[in-house]
Computed example of a mutant assay.
Amino acid sequence: MILNEENSLLKATEATGKSFLLVEDEALIRMMLADMLEELGHRVTAEAGSLAEALSLARDAAFDIAILDINLAGSVSVPAAEVIAERGIPFLFASGYSEAGLPRALGDRPMLRKPFQLKELQGAIRALLGAG
C-alpha cells in the first residue's frame, strides 16, 4: 500500500481487511469512499445507490461493516440500517445532515459528517470495531 503525505500517519500494517457494504446515492461519493476504504486495506463487497438496493443487500449480502448515507435521493436509509442492526453487523452513518431525523434506537450509532478525511474514516472504523 502506498501512503501519500496527507495520510502518512496511517500504517499499512493496521489494515484489517474488513468487507464493506456502501449505501450512498451519489456515485462519485460512493467511488471516493470505496477508494478510501481500499487505501485503508479494506474491500467493498456490496454497493447500493437506492433504498430498494440497500434493503436487498442489507438482508442478503455478506459484509463485515456497513456505511450508510442517511438521505438516499429523498428516502432515508433507516429501514436498511434496522435490518443490518438485526443481523448484528456494525455500521455507521455518513451524512451532511444531522442525526436529528434518526429514530431514537439508531441515534447512538456513529456518524461521519461529510465531507470527511481518510483519518476520520479510519478513526470511525476503529471506534466501531472497539479498537480505537
Results as ranks from 00 to 15, higher is better:
Ala58Pro: 08
Lys11Ile: 08
Ser56Pro: 05
Leu102Cys: 11
Leu112Asp: 07
Arg109Trp: 05
Leu129Ala: 10
Ala73Thr: 13
Ala52Gln: 15
Leu128Phe: 14
Leu68Tyr: 03
Leu51Trp: 05
Leu55Gly: 04
Ala12Trp: 02
Ala94Gln: 05
Leu102Asn: 05
Glu82Gln: 10
Asp25Ala: 10
Gly96Met: 04
Leu68Gln: 02
Ala131Gln: 15
Leu102Met: 13
Leu112Thr: 11
Phe63Thr: 01
Leu28Arg: 14
Asp25Leu: 06
Leu106Cys: 12
Leu21His: 04
Ala131Thr: 15
Gly17Met: 06
Ala12Glu: 11
Glu38Asn: 14
Asn71Thr: 11
Tyr97Asp: 11
Ser50Pro: 11
Ala58His: 02
Met36Ser: 09
Met36Asp: 12
Gly49Thr: 01
Asn71His: 11
Val23Cys: 08
Glu6Arg: 15
Ala73Phe: 05
Leu121Pro: 00
Gly49Gln: 07
Met32Gln: 15
Ser8Gln: 13
Phe91Asp: 04
Thr13Asp: 09
Gly132Tyr: 06
Ala124Cys: 07
Gly74Trp: 08
Ser77Glu: 12
Pro79Ser: 12
Gly49Ser: 14
Glu86Gly: 15
Leu57Ala: 05
Ile29Phe: 06
Asn7Ala: 03
Ala58Arg: 02
Leu57Tyr: 00
Gly49Pro: 02
Phe91Ser: 09
Asp64Met: 04
Leu128Asn: 01
Ser95Pro: 02
Gly88Trp: 10
Gly88Asn: 14
Leu33Phe: 09
Val23Tyr: 02
Leu128Pro: 01
Gly101Ile: 15
Asp64His: 06
Arg104Ala: 13
Gly130Thr: 12
Tyr97Leu: 04
Ala80Arg: 09
Leu129Trp: 00
Glu86Met: 00
Leu106Gly: 14
Val76Trp: 01
Lys11Tyr: 09
Glu24Asp: 01
Leu102Glu: 08
Leu22Trp: 06
Leu128Tyr: 00
Glu14Ile: 03
Leu128Cys: 07
Gln117Cys: 07
Ile29Ser: 12
Leu21Ser: 01
Ala73Ile: 07
Ile65Gly: 06
Met32Ala: 15
Asp108Val: 11
Pro79Arg: 15
Ala127Gly: 12
Leu21Phe: 02
Glu53Ser: 02
Thr16Val: 03
Ile65Tyr: 05
Ala73Gly: 10
Glu47Tyr: 02
Ser77Arg: 11
Ile65Lys: 00
Leu40Phe: 10
Glu99Met: 12
Ala81Cys: 09
Arg126Glu: 13
Arg113Glu: 09
Arg109Leu: 04
Arg43Lys: 15
Ala105Val: 12
Ala73Trp: 03
Gly74Asp: 01
Glu86Cys: 03
Leu37Asn: 10
Leu121Asp: 06
Asn7Glu: 09
Ile2Phe: 13
Leu22Gly: 02
Pro103Trp: 07
Asp108Leu: 13
Ala85Met: 12
Ala61Arg: 00
Leu21Gly: 05
Leu129Asn: 13
Ile65Pro: 10
Phe116Gly: 07
Arg113Ser: 10
Met1Gly: 11
Met36His: 14
Gly123Trp: 03
Gln117His: 06
Gly132Gln: 08
Ala127Thr: 12
Glu86Leu: 11
Gly130Cys: 10
